[in-house]
Simulated assay, not measured.
Amino acid sequence: MTDYSKYLDVKPEVADAIRNNKPVVALESTIISHGMPYPKNVETAMKVEHIIRDNGAVPATIAIIKGKLKAGCSPEEIEYLGKTGTGVNKASRRDLAVLAASKSDGATTVTTTMMIAHMAGIKIFATGGIGGVHRGAEKTMDISADLEELAKTPVMVICAGAKAILDLGLTLEYLETHGVPVLGYGTKELPAFYTRKSGFNVDYEVDSPKELANIFCTSQKLGLQSGILVTNPIPEEYSMDHELINKAVNEAVAEANRLKIHGKEITPYLLAKVKDITGGDSLEANIQLVYNNAELAARIACEVSRLSDK
């Protein structure tokens, strides 16, 4: 077994919870540094942690600070990530060793949050939306590392679906090829981040946190090494019009193509552009879906903890 102790720094509260089989929920930090403006990013991050506590679990915001893989950040560290913003490196799998070796900072994506959560022994992770296969990927080969990580890291990821800027059909095909189950919480249709509708179906509809926890624990007992993706639709009152979002995304993608924006810059560019086109409504939708996912993740983590005690 690999010894991560030189690089991994687990917050004492989180370490105690893991040791005593208490529920823990991992949270990413890219949404803090790259997803929202300051101070809204810090306010949102702290509220997400409160929501998780209110629902009986321990929050563990994950980041890389001075080369240390942090499983649980202090309020001061969250403030630092929020204030520094895009000055913090956006850290995917390819960046992890470089940032750790050079004692640099990194805001973790879905990929690196899953990795560090798994290293620390955290089983449940709440995020906004996952990355996926980008539109036009048949030419650009632009496919998020999130999908590969879901294929090989046994963490349950709760999200509001794949980001609406993506090719959702190809994203589902990619996950199917890699054996990753896509579960819909109370829905047969894949939610598309800002909207509850996409026109694509998930693999299975699941109606309770207890059932989701049972599926995860069964996967662990079977020795399956892939993650499980839970798609949780944005609350109805915050869901944006499907056609409006599609129009905004198409405009944003066309402009990105004209400007030759690609690689790790494309997702933040497109999300910012959609925010501008929708008059800022997409930012509020983004915040509300993150709160919704945090609550569900905490409830699942509590059920996983109960099942693990049996």
Rank of each mutant, 00 (worst) to 15 (best):
L175D: 08
A162T: 11
D167A: 04
P181Q: 03
E176C: 05
C159T: 15
E176L: 04
C159R: 00
A145V: 07
I143R: 06
T177I: 14
A160W: 04
K163H: 03
P154V: 06
I158W: 02
V180R: 10
M156H: 02
T177W: 01
L147M: 12
L170Y: 11
Y174K: 11
V155N: 11
T171W: 00
K152G: 13
D167W: 00
T177E: 15
A145C: 12
E173V: 02
D146V: 07
V155L: 10
P181L: 10
A164D: 09
V157W: 03
H178C: 09
C159H: 02
I143A: 08
M156Y: 02
E173D: 14
L166F: 07
C159Q: 04
A162D: 04
H178I: 09
G169F: 01
L168E: 10
T171C: 00
T153F: 00
K163W: 00
M156R: 06
T177D: 15
P154S: 08
L150Y: 04
H178E: 10
T177Y: 07
T171G: 02
T177Q: 10
L170S: 14
I158Q: 01
E176S: 12
T171D: 03
M156A: 14
E149C: 14
P181M: 11
A151L: 05
L147V: 09
I165P: 00
A151V: 10
L170F: 11
E149T: 14
A162M: 06
A162C: 13
A145Y: 10
L172Y: 05
T177R: 13
E148P: 05
D167C: 04
G169R: 02
A160G: 15
L147K: 08
T177M: 12
D142P: 07
I158P: 06
C159L: 02
D167R: 00
E148R: 05
L150M: 14
L172V: 11
G169W: 00
G179E: 10
A151R: 04
H178M: 13
A160F: 03
C159D: 05
I143D: 07
T177L: 13
I158C: 14
G179D: 12
G179A: 08
L147Q: 10
I165L: 07
T177V: 14
G179C: 10
E176I: 09
A145M: 11
G179T: 08
L147Y: 04
D146Y: 01
K152H: 14
L170R: 15
P154H: 02
E148W: 02
A151Y: 08
P181T: 11
D142T: 11
P154W: 01
I158D: 01
E173H: 07
E176N: 11
K152Y: 10
L170D: 13
L168F: 04
G179R: 06
L150S: 12
V157M: 05
L166E: 06
T153I: 12
L147W: 02
G161C: 01
D142M: 07
E176F: 03
P154N: 05
L147R: 05
A164E: 03
L168G: 10
V157S: 08
L150W: 08
V157L: 09
V155W: 06
T153P: 12
L170E: 14
V155I: 15
S144G: 14
E173N: 12
P181W: 05
L166Q: 09
S144P: 11
M156P: 12
M156Q: 09
